[in-house]
Design a protein around this nucleic acid. Structure first.
Length: 258
DNA sequence: AACCCTGCCAACCGCGAGATT
DNA sequence: GAATCTCGCGGTTGGCAGGGT
């Protein structure tokens, strides 16, 4: 088969964005909202031409849709914080990275106003070195046991840092209403189990009963999770991922993960 | 003053997954 | 079911600024 490139390279602006381009993009998105990135550059040009009465005549937003999306998400979007990552944020990034690996979008989701690109850059520039230095320092200390524990990951398995789109997470309850299992589901498709049978996707979605999180704690969630180790699948219900992360906020076990 | 080196970060790129045709 | 489109992700690149020689 094959797939069309996102956009041709000839005649498309590349490199740093000008103020005019930012304005075109912001105006368009404020009017029409996000999405449809592929067609946006052309439409943004048309809109501005009409609105500004020839002031931008023939000046379309000559950018790849992908580039528009990136510019909006990482720079123009309202509420973006820039620079000055606080010690608290730094600490949170380190913890989340240890838990999630290089899943920058998930990490960014826990840091309001921060973008995945910024966190990725910050990690690559500062934190990876800092963590490396901290580990080296610890190795030199007497507590070699804890270092082995830290480095081997035998007590905590990092979620595979694979780039997948995961907006929902499935969780199951045992008879007592406690969490048993969870995974990112294929949408609307039966789930394979390790005994060769399949399970239909749940007919009804139930939002997680929040107190159950505090009953078992985040550690319990992940230690019983087939995201980490098994292929077992149990009957599930579904929740939006942001609800899970919301729950983590209040769980003392979160701070004991490391 | 000129050149080189290094670090930062915005932007690009290729790819995978889900949606649509 | 296959082909194609769209979106979002993480890895990488390249331009720029600042410091060092």
């Amino acid at each position: 088969m094959g797939r069309k490139p996102c956009c041709g390279k000839e005649g498309v602006n590349r490199g740093a964005w000008s103020l005019k381009e930012d304005e075109l993009l912001s105006n368009y998105i404020q009017l029409h909202g996000e999405g449809k990135w592929r067609n946006l550059p052309h439409k943004a040009g048309i809109y501005i031409n009409a609105k500004h009465l020839f002031s931008y005549f023939l000046v379309g937003l000559n950018r790849c849709g992908k580039s528009c999306r990136l510019r909006w998400m990482n720079y123009l979007r309202p509420g973006i914080k820039r620079g000055n990552i606080s010690p608290d944020e730094q600490d949170l990034i380190i913890r989340l990275h240890r838990l999630l690996g290089n899943r920058w979008s998930l990490i960014a989701g826990r840091l309001p106003g921060r973008t995945d690109n910024e966190i990725k850059n910050y990690w690559n520039t500062f934190l990876s070195k800092k963590v490396q230095a901290d580990v080296s320092k610890t190795i030199e200390s007497e507590d070699k046991k804890s270092v082995r524990k830290y480095k081997s990951g035998t007590t905590r398995k990092v979620i595979v840092p694979k780039a997948t789109r995961c907006t929902k997470i499935l969780l199951s309850l045992d008879e007592g209403g406690h969490l048993k299992n969870n995974q990112c589901p294929p949408s609307s498709t039966p789930l394979d189990t390790n005994d060769g049978s399949t399970l239909e996707s749940p007919k009804e979605n139930h939002l997680l009963d929040m107190p159950n999180f505090s009953d078992i704690g985040i550690e319990g969630i992940f230690e019983n999770s087939n995201m980490l180790e098994t292929d077992d699948v149990a009957p599930m219900f579904e929740m939006e991922f942001h609800n899970l992360t919301y729950s983590l906020e209040f769980d003392d076990d979160w701070t004991n993960l490391l």
